[in-house]
């Protein structure tokens, strides 16, 4: 994969809408770590259009190799085992998109995110959205939706939560929610602010900008 000669590939200006929402949160010239950077689309965008010092961590070796072959700085690793090696405040932003619910220890990961980044950008599918609640209520089966598109026995999402659950964990950990929004099933931002009762009912995904509280959770 991705054997196109690096440096000759033109920077991709059009990226997935949910990635663009995240990119818009990042200041120019920031130091950014994208955890679970996939094929590097967001990193590539940040590097070329925001002049960001962009780094990535990706679990699949094929993804890493493709990223590095594009000239991006990416290592093979994952949120659970590799974040602890980084020093505190190593980055201005640490991004964890659609991955928290698939980790074994979301609490530990969250603590590390706000430790190594001055800010963390975290997004996840909201298990509290109305149609998920309805499906469970009416069908009595684990919901399969656009955001949660695999059956219970093969889903990587082992720690699903609602926006309200997430907000509560942040509070427990002394993490400050600087900004919160909800996205629809195609990753487009809705007008709702999160957290909030309505956000928890209507948001397909939650997207939060977090920072470590002054009390310090870690």
């Amino acid at each position: 994969m991705a054997t196109a000669p690096a440096g000759t590939a033109r920077p991709r200006a059009n990226i997935r809408v949910d990635l663009k929402v995240i990119a818009d949160l990042i200041e120019e010239n920031a130091r950014v770590l994208d955890i679970g950077c996939g094929d590097g689309a967001l990193l590539d965008y940040l590097e070329h259009f925001k002049r960001v010092d962009a780094r990535g961590i990706e679990i699949s070796q094929a993804g890493v190799n493709a990223c590095v072959a594009q000239g991006l700085s990416v290592i093979q690793g994952d949120a659970e085992t590799d974040l602890r090696h980084y020093p505190s405040d190593a980055f201005d932003y640490v991004i964890l998109s659609q991955t928290l619910q698939a980790t074994y220890d979301p609490k530990g990961v969250l603590e590390n995110l706000v430790r190594i980044g001055r800010r963390a950008v975290v997004s996840f599918p909201n298990f509290g959205v109305w149609h998920v609640r309805l499906r469970l209520l009416v069908n009595g089966r684990m919901p399969v939706t656009d955001s949660l598109d695999t059956a219970w026995y093969e889903t990587p999402n082992i720690h699903l939560c609602t926006i309200a659950d997430f907000d509560e964990l942040c509070e427990d950990l002394g993490i400050v929610v600087e900004q919160g929004m909800v996205l629809d099933s195609r990753g487009r931002p809705r007008w709702l602010r999160a957290p909030g009762l309505l956000a928890n009912w209507l948001g397909e995904q939650g997207l939060f900008v977090l920072k470590r509280g002054t009390g310090g959770a870690g």
């Binding site: 990223c67 700085s73 093979q76 590799d82 980084y86």
Partner: peptide
Amino acid sequence: NAVAANVSFV
């Protein structure tokens, strides 16, 4: 990583 160096690993 511990010194936040710019590193790729393949």
